[in-house]
Amino acid sequence: MTAKKLIRHETILALLVIVALFVLDRQSDRFFTVDNLFNQGRLMTEVGLIALIMTFVIVTGGIDLSVGSIVGMTAIVLGVFWKNLGLPLPLAILLALAVGTFAGFVNGIIITRFRVPALIATLGTLALYRGIAEGISQARSVRGYPEWFFVLGQGSVLGVPTQLWILGLVALLSAVALAYTTWGRTTYAIGSNEVAARFSGLGVDATKIAIYAASGFAAALAAVIFVSRVSTTRSDMGTGLELDAITAVVLGGTSIFGGRGTVVGTILGLILIQALKNGLSLAGVKSDGTVVLIGAVLILTILVSNLFHRDANR
């Protein structure tokens, strides 16, 4: 029992992260500096926010492929509300967050009310939301945001990049919510056996809708931060982000079949991927090589973790 607990996936992953950090540190003296680490945090915030909530989605046995498109749609909505409709920027931000949350809510409704499998529903909204972004923007980008807005994506608070505070807060909240609240337990129950969860009187549909809405909110928050970081708005923002987020979540040990997974695992997965991208580049490996290596690491990590699990189960 104790042995089984010790060699959980997260432990293996944590060891791997430590080994990777150690090895990468030996390759370049510029890797393990405060500046670089903060900077990497800045770069992984958007995918991080999305992956944190994606953990909940996948734990319920669902998936959300539309997050990248929600990023594009909310970015465009932010720009259009502010520039074309002339709303004050703070209000435009709030409205963009509301639109993203609503987009996630619609996913939840389609999945729960119409019983459409999550993969199919979000494949459809992946095309729809990206299409709405393209349609509204007419391929025009919105730029010229006021200086104060860039604090969010390019500035620092108390010496730490602004968005890292947000990422940290969301990470903390979601870790607590998944591990220690009734809501979190319901999430696991749905993933383990949805029918049983329903018969036990748990609010299955309400929980799922809330999770997909939260996923939309996380994508919208990521969009606002991203717009602030790159100081422009385009309809193709966030393309392919869903696969990056899902990679981090499954690398973190969340079972794609639902019922198993932790926020801590996802955070470790995110750190490992970002450390590899950055550290390998500093060590002189080019992007195409890094892409290949990350693919191999993903397969091997889960493979090794599975082997340990099987031994521990015997």
Partner: peptide
């Protein structure tokens, strides 16, 4: 952006 950022760090 990430690629450029990495090379700035690398020097």
């Amino acid at each position: 952006i990430t690629v450029i950022d990495n090379y700035i760090t690398k020097g």
